Amino acid sequence: MPMLSNNEEQSAPIKEIYKEIDQYKDQIVSNISRIVRCKSVMEKSQPGKPFGQGPYQALQIALEISRELGLKTADLDGYVGYAEYGEGEDYVAVPVHLDVVPEGTGWTVDPYSGVVKDGKIFGRGSSDNKSPAIAAIYSLKILKDLNIKTKRRVRVIFGTNEETGMECLDYYFKKESLPLYGFSPDAGYPAYNREKGIMSLYLEKDTNELARCTDISSIEAGNAFNVVPEFCTVTFNTPYKDDLEVLSDISKGEPGKVYYINERYGKVIASRGTPAHGSTPEDGLNAIAVMLEYLYEKLPNIKECGFLNFIWNKIGYEPDGASLGIAMEDSLSGKLSNNLGLFS
């Protein structure tokens, strides 16, 4: 909900809105916790559930809450839905999203508990973007309760694929007309009027370089392209020897370090990074870069692997694409962001 100053000069409608917000406070908190408890990370598509069970379930929860509050709703084949208030031919869009990025590690509470502690709701998606989604629903409810007439319809659109491709909105606009205008409560307060675009680029090479130059059988990292990877795992064909600490769980390791997993001189090592959103890679520590730095120090022959050379020398730890030759910036948007999110 907007943070408005509560003073004597406020108009009567604003004062009434404050009263309504206070009336629904416990409900709002309860429903935020309810939807946070839904693990809405993208999964394998199922019939009627294009982005998997979690995002579909979150969409159904949002629609159910909206219907309980007396709002008009629609479900567009499990891709996207909306709640709406008002009349008229045109509408204003308020797009929110109910999907989340993977929870990662290091939580002091269950990331899908929606627990309330010290006046805050804890859980994956509690900020991005489930709380704003619930607040938007209740904004429509308050307009309805107070019988405030709007010049056009106001529609809260529930996306379920914002974090991994925006296919939900692609589908929406195949089914629905464009809004007259819109705004999304998915940024800093009070308002942002621009956002960087995004390009997901997949680099693939069919090569036996690893097998020819090293004893490595696989390198695996990341679970979403828009998240800085927290872990990177390397598996060798035969036992690998080095002076590394042994861990049973890499999430217990220190960021920036490499460890044996489960046994000393075993076949599996892993690096620990620090996760961050892919739009701000400078806030994290990429576990892929940590691992490549280690491997290039320990395995001389790895320098014969052209593909890995490209990844290490042209991307590495850089968050801005400088060595790729794509670095750029402007005074409004800042620097280009470049994130190596997946490796397999």
Rank of each mutant, 00 (worst) to 15 (best):
Asp283Ala: 12
Gly197Glu: 03
Gly159Asn: 05
Phe122Thr: 07
Ala224Ser: 13
Glu64Trp: 06
Ile250Gly: 08
Leu292His: 06
Leu342Cys: 15
Tyr181Gln: 07
Thr108Val: 12
Gln57Phe: 00
Asn309Met: 15
Asp90Trp: 05
Phe307Tyr: 11
Gly119Glu: 06
Val96Trp: 06
Lys303Thr: 15
Leu71His: 04
Tyr189Gln: 12
Ile288Pro: 08
Ser30Leu: 04
Ser139Pro: 15
Val41Met: 07
Gly321Ile: 09
Val80Trp: 07
Gly306Met: 11
Lys120Asn: 12
Val94Tyr: 00
Asn338Gly: 12
Ser66Leu: 08
Lys144Asn: 10
Ile134Thr: 06
Cys232His: 01
Glu163Lys: 02
Asp128Phe: 13
Arg152Val: 02
Pro102Gln: 09
Thr164Arg: 06
Val80Gln: 01
Phe343Ile: 14
Val109Arg: 00
Asp249Gln: 03
Val154Trp: 03
Lys39His: 06
Ala187Cys: 09
Val94Met: 06
Gly52Pro: 08
Thr233Gln: 03
Lys149Tyr: 01
Ser184Phe: 04
Pro185Met: 10
Lys335Asp: 13
Leu146Thr: 01
Cys213Thr: 14
Gly321Asp: 14
Glu176Lys: 12
Glu304Tyr: 14
Lys117His: 11
Asn309Phe: 10
Leu76Ser: 03
Thr105Lys: 10
Ile142Gly: 03
Asn313Val: 12
Ser323Lys: 15
Leu69Ile: 07
Lys144Thr: 05
Leu69Pro: 00
Pro2Glu: 09
Ile17Ser: 09
Ser323Val: 12
Asn208His: 09
Ile28His: 06
Glu209Phe: 07
Ala74Tyr: 04
Gly165Val: 10
Gly197His: 00
Pro50His: 00
Gly106Asp: 05
Gln53His: 04
Glu9Arg: 11
Lys298Ser: 12
Glu293Asp: 15
Glu9Asn: 15
Gly86Gln: 09
Tyr82Thr: 11
Asn147Cys: 09
Val115Arg: 13
Asn339Ile: 14
Ser323Phe: 14
Pro300Lys: 14
Pro190Asn: 05
Ile261Cys: 00
Lys298Met: 13
Lys49Met: 08
Glu209Pro: 07
Ala12Pro: 09
Gly284Pro: 08
Met166Pro: 02
Ser33Ala: 04
